[in-house]
């Protein structure tokens, strides 16, 4: 179960634990459920609780970016650890996804 907060068109989701190919599958399904609400235009992924992450998370973020971009929305990430930044930067993710303080 993801913990999240909806405010106007903004959906903030707090990811936690280890993000790998196996653990991301249910997270993706739940995120997409939440994004079914057409009022949601902006997705903020709060990464503070993420204790491990590999390249699977890049695909997750890019996938949600594509879905939201189609409806004129956006994705941003916040509270990323230096390691998370390093992996996201390798993929040039911050060219399409805003990193919020």
């Amino acid at each position: 179960m993801l913990s999240y907060e909806k405010y106007k068109g903004k959906l903030t989701v707090r990811l936690k634990g280890e993000l790998d190919h196996a653990s991301i599958a249910p997270i993706r399904a739940e995120l997409d459920q939440l994004l079914n609400d057409p009022k949601v235009k902006h997705l903020v992924l709060d990464m503070e609780g993420v204790s491990f992450m590999d390249s699977s998370a890049i695909g997750l973020v890019i996938g949600r970016y594509k879905a939201l971009a189609r409806r004129g929305g956006s994705v941003s990430v916040t509270r990323t650890a230096p390691r998370v930044d390093r992996i996201f930067e390798m993929a040039g993710l911050y060219q399409i996804v805003e990193k919020r303080a």
């Binding site: 390249s55 699977s56 695909g59 890019i62 390798m90 993929a91």
Partner: peptide, 12 residues
């Protein structure tokens, strides 16, 4: 939704 970055991550 694979990104093709796995080997790049390993290398780095």
């Amino acid at each position: 939704e694979r990104s093709g970055m796995g080997f790049t991550v390993m290398e780095s």
